[in-house]
Design a binder for these strands. Structure first.
Lengths: 244, 244
DNA sequence: CGCATAATTGATGGTTATCAAGACCAGTGG
DNA sequence: CCACTGGTCTTGATAACCATCAATTATGCG
């Protein structure tokens, strides 16, 4: 494989130097490709899919549907993310996956991880770490949902997104493309589309952000961060305990 | 070591048959003990603790403090749980740990996992699976916080607790000891102590549960489960993909 | 151009927060 | 034995935040 431009390898290399063997194992996960259309449902809780996916391009999100139509979006996926890791613990998927925009995915079976766990301890430790890091992010998200106002939730959400994007793309500055409807943002933050609109306007009036044609520009990022006591969970991780 | 009565080994054995080697590695984690008093802070975000803990007895919880005093409890820990796994990804703890009642903990350093990852692929896969399962539970929790009413959140919370307790203790029936104040339950569910009280009374009036001297009895568990579309994440896990 | 999707804005209402007072209980010291 | 205390729970009155509903205005796409 050599010098591919795999987002997954780029993302993981941010944290450790990967051995050639590890890079080969990862390339193995990205062998197959599948293109999906905007708003296509990739899989749902109902189907018994046993695949996981590496995102090659496009944004997607995982969500939960409640019986009466209420919906909770639980994670936004970007290029280089591994989607479906949590479903490893169960027979079928525990959430639904939907594309925000046209995207390309690389499906692979659960056993794909098997080879990694048995032959690449360092990469195993990294995947383990990414999984527990996700855990911490979900906890931050819980705190936002449980204890923050609408304005604060939006602030937290934007800071979380931009921090993630900065890992793979260093020239992200203060602007953020946002291929999500306000209804989707509401479903992520436990709000209605109407109140998302009103809260955005309110933040804009305060001059902490500004809406652009395709997203948002954070005008006073530090103020936003102070507002929600934001912790960047993506920039640094502790890899010191890893086996080599 | 042989036939210890370790809650950790009991809990893990619920999912796979552990090899002698794995049992030894796990016993290693439980070598040291530390007793903590009711409401004692075991560690906080401020300190740079690099330890994780196995719970030997007692309930504890992890929580996040916001600048202005708001608090979010993110997980209740029971005997046999490993506490602090998510902090593996970071230099210091990402949450605070507090005891609900007198408890005994077994501290061990991050490197304790190192030995497991390099020499016990099956146990590694199990720990990995537990970590991603936690992830799914957090997602359920997010859905409760984001999209459920106060009554539904309480229903979900009680069902989640009783499902977990049933793994290690088969003679849990419909009653549940609850060593938590209503303020703590509120901090878990994004509610105030006052509204927790009112919602409990409301559920009791409806006859779906009954408060006992030290906890709660679920009178119509199925109705509670239907109310929140409850999925038991603890009873079964998919271990079919594990390396042996 | 016409149609569907998305965003905005205003009016109204409901769920939950806040505030405050009182009841209950366990432990403690007089 | 009995006030006293601190913690917890309960209950009621009021208020805030956000949901709901509805109408209107963009925005994009065949």
């Amino acid at each position: 494989m050599g010098q591919t431009d795999s987002c997954l390898i780029t993302k993981l290399s941010h944290y450790v130097d990967l051995s050639d063997h590890s890079r080969e194992l990862l390339s193995e996960l990205e062998k197959e490709e599948r293109a999906v259309a905007r708003h296509e449902e990739v899989y749902s809780v109902a189907e018994k899919s046993r695949f996981m996916y590496v995102v090659k391009s496009g944004w997607l999100y995982s969500y939960i549907d409640l019986a009466d139509g209420r919906r909770q979006i639980v994670k936004i996926h970007h290029p280089g993310d591994i989607v479906g890791l949590p479903d490893l613990a169960f027979e079928g998927p525990t959430s639904n996956l939907r594309a925000c925009e046209p995207a390309v995915l690389c499906p692979f079976p659960k056993q794909g991880l098997n080879a990694i766990l048995t032959s690449a301890p360092q990469l195993s430790a990294l995947l383990f770490t990414l999984s527990v890091r996700d855990n911490v992010v979900l906890v931050d998200n819980m705190t936002a949902l449980g204890r923050m106002s609408a304005r604060e939730r939006i602030a937290w959400f934007l800071l979380d997104l931009i921090s993630r994007l900065r890992i793979t793309n260093r020239n992200v500055t203060d602007a953020l493309r946002l291929p999500l409807t306000q209804t989707e943002i509401g479903d992520m933050l436990g709000l209605t589309n109407v109140y998302v609109s009103k809260s955005f306007s309110s933040l804009e009036r305060d001059g902490v952000l500004e809406r652009t044609v395709d997203g948002v520009r954070l005008l006073r990022e530090q103020d936003l961060a102070d507002m929600v006591d934001f912790k960047n969970r993506y920039a640094d991780m502790d890899t010191s305990w890893f086996p080599c």
